[in-house]
């Protein structure tokens, strides 16, 4: 069952928004050609509206990261259309429309945390005063105030990843793309960061695209869960979350949460069945 997604504006999000932030129509991406070609994305149709938190979940090879990279114009689709803020992904990249958080924090070891966060600001030509002010703001946002002068190796893995999120938040991009940002962290740290991320999302009202392997993480965070399946990479099902936007960690023990997690698991299983 392939649920076609049309604009379903979340009551909490901005209904006045002209169009979806991300709109994919029959998107295809084939790597290589001939017998060795890989169909990484097949007929992707998806709308993401402003203020949504959308998770992409699926086994490796399902194209979830590839889709995110297409949105970021780090990969070029071979067919169909994709728009970001009404522009092509390339135009969106050039207008610095999104912040991207990678699986590894990727902080520069020769820069302090504050200087790392300044990196995009320096590149984008923000004034010195503006840089300092924004660094202070985002450090506070990810609860790293006071750590600006530390070097990355002086911080734990979880703190480093928070710093890399702060780096992606430092400039004015309404869209945050996160590629398994907490994949390398342990469960407890991960829970904590998930909770923080939700708060941050509520405060900033950003649109978030989030790639993950973890069912509880996807269900806990998302307003919309995109279940994908591999070979060729395609959307198997899109599940709208019925959970409230306000989510304490113990919401994960409610029947509603367990019900959604169950649906995601069933979707993943069915998606695998196509092989």
């Amino acid at each position: 069952m392939n649920m076609q997604m049309t604009s379903q504006v979340d009551s909490a999000s901005d209904a006045a928004q002209a169009g979806p932030v991300i709109e994919a129509r029959d998107l295809n991406l084939v790597f290589g050609s001939g017998e060795t070609s890989v169909h990484a994305l097949k007929d992707i149709n998806l709308n993401i509206n402003k203020g949504e938190f959308v998770s992409f979940i699926g086994p490796s090879g399902c194209g979830k990261t590839t889709f995110l990279r297409c949105v970021a114009a780090l990969e070029t689709p071979t067919g169909g259309s994709l728009s970001v803020n009404g522009m092509t992904p390339e135009q969106a990249r050039q207008s610095r429309a999104y912040g991207y958080v990678f699986q590894a924090a990727g902080l520069y070891p020769w820069r302090t945390i504050a200087k790392n966060i300044k990196l995009p600001l320096e590149i984008m030509g923000y004034s010195k005063a503006e840089q300092d002010q924004r660094v202070a703001e985002v450090l506070e946002l990810v609860e790293l105030a006071g750590f600006g002068g530390k070097f990355p190796w002086q911080l734990s893995g979880g703190m480093q990843q928070r710093a890399s999120i702060a780096r992606a938040l430092a400039f004015d991009a309404d869209l945050l793309l996160m590629d398994e940002p907490f994949g390398a962290l342990d469960e407890i740290v991960r829970d904590h960061l998930n909770e923080q991320l939700l708060k941050l999302w509520a405060r900033t009202n950003k649109t978030i695209g989030f790639v993950t392997h973890s069912i509880p993480e996807a269900v806990y965070l998302s307003t919309k869960i995109v279940v994908m399946s591999p070979r060729p990479g395609r959307i198997h099902e899109v599940i709208e979350s019925t959970l409230p936007r306000e989510r304490p960690l113990d919401i994960r023990d409610t029947p509603e949460f367990i019900e959604i997690a169950h649906r995601v698991r069933e979707g993943l299983r069915a998606g695998h069945g196509h092989d």
Partner: peptide, 23 residues
């Protein structure tokens, strides 16, 4: 990953050189 990160900032070749490659 680090080069991709610079790409997401739409950094120029000069900026990539001075801020990433040289250090």
């Amino acid at each position: 990953m680090q080069l991709d990160l610079m790409k997401t900032y739409f950094a120029s070749g000069n900026q990539v050189f001075w801020k990433l490659r040289l250090p």
